[in-house]
Design a protein around this nucleic acid. Structure first.
Lengths: 121, 121
DNA sequence: ACAAATATACGAAACCTTTCGTAATTAAAT
DNA sequence: ATTTAATTACGAAAGGTTTCGTATATTTGT
């Protein structure tokens, strides 16, 4: 499966967050951050539909779009890609880079440690 | 700074690994994995030079290219991007996803734990 | 019933990335 | 010197993404 484009990712992100949404719903979120026009959002969603990234319900006049590919699988896909290309295939290198840079609070660190301990067993 | 394209990333990866290299050097590595033609690699390097991603030494007939942007900063850039778009801004979510999926061996896990412990202090 | 507002469909332009063929240049070999 | 080989320069095509204007259809309000 090919990696979604940046534009598609932005829309998927909104759909994962808000669940099934109309074009207008998606657009209003997108407008704030990007200032793009309504028909641009519409077109993007239509193309994503053609590609099988989203499904849509056309029963009513206002079509409702919903993500088909999951957030989880997309996360994995993107992570694997960058691990392969810029982290020499090493997940731990990526982990350390992520923790070193992004400020991670104590609570989050604890969660990660707990997670690591459970992985051992 | 705009994110390097996939093709550019492949080349940067080679340059980071091998250091300053001729077009032929880069191409021979690329050829194995992609089967692309020599002039394609050349053109890509020329474009990357225009963009300021690499510098080149044209003193000799054979030009030598070298990465300008660092592996570290590129790693950070890519990680931040996907943390923002598909991990709700949470680095720890990314970490867990990375560890859960990619098979990480015991040695790597130990390294991560040690790293985490040092972060605390 | 009509006008206004809202929605989708669609085509095309603008832009970017990638690919590669051809020409021009330079170096090496004979 | 001349030919052969290797290199760079360059243009253009192919393919993909993103943008948006216009046309068409549908709904809502009066």
């Amino acid at each position: 499966m090919k990696k979604p484009t940046d534009g598609e990712l932005e829309i998927l992100s909104i759909l994962w967050d808000k669940g099934p949404s109309s074009v207008r719903d998606v657009h209003e979120t997108l407008e704030e951050t990007k200032g793009s026009k309504y028909t641009t959002t519409l077109k993007l969603l239509q193309i994503m539909h053609e590609k099988g990234l989203v499904k849509r319900d056309t029963a009513a006049k206002v079509h409702i779009y919903e993500a088909i590919i999951t957030k989880d699988s997309t996360q994995k896909q993107l992570i694997n890609k960058i691990i392969d290309t810029v982290f020499d295939g090493s997940a731990s290198q990526l982990v350390m880079q992520a923790l070193g840079h992004h400020k991670t609070n104590a609570k989050e660190l604890e969660a990660i440690k707990k997670y690591l301990d459970n992985l051992d067993k």
